[in-house]
Design a protein around this nucleic acid. Sequence first.
DNA 1: ATTAATTTGGGTAATTTGGGCT
DNA 2: AATGTCCAAATTACCCAAATTA
Lengths: 80, 80
Amino acid sequence: MASRPPEADELLTPAEVAALFRVDPKTVTRWAKAGKLTSIRTLGGHRRYRAAEVRALLGDIPGPRAGEAAASEAGPALGA
Amino acid sequence: MASRPPEADELLTPAEVAALFRVDPKTVTRWAKAGKLTSIRTLGGHRRYRAAEVRALLGDIPGPRAGEAAASEAGPALGA
DNA sequence: ATTAATTTGGGTAATTTGGGCT
DNA sequence: AATGTCCAAATTACCCAAATTA
């Protein structure tokens, strides 16, 4: 893969999203198929995911501070 | 430092298209060779790509909430 | 602890993509 | 920075079994 220049932080690869969620890349693909996650397709058919959306779903932990309890079981948006 | 004049962005370089799709420039060249992406050749043989076409393929979502009902899995851009 | 449901992961085959080199 | 070719890794899609949840 290519490096991660801060400017290109717009899209994420399946492997990157999978690593962030601690799941298999195949599971991320399944979320995209189910419409739970927005996916952009490359011209070859591979998927790319919006970094902003993934961060939001992960709880969007900004930085060193502010690591408070962010409702662990309050948003079953994906577990339906 | 006007590296990329916004108004004159009719054409994009391979590196710019690659960054937008989160792929390698080599992959963009492959798309052009496969006829999946319109490419204009410079007199030196290098390729340039139409910004409008690239934006359309990416989904063209400019603002915060623009394409709300943008079906992610409705575009089989695959050419296999 | 039981069933029943969904979700997730593993396997294989085919294509696409990325890295190194020219 | 971009091109072209070779080869390995990643991703895709399909199947079915295991894990998780209610």
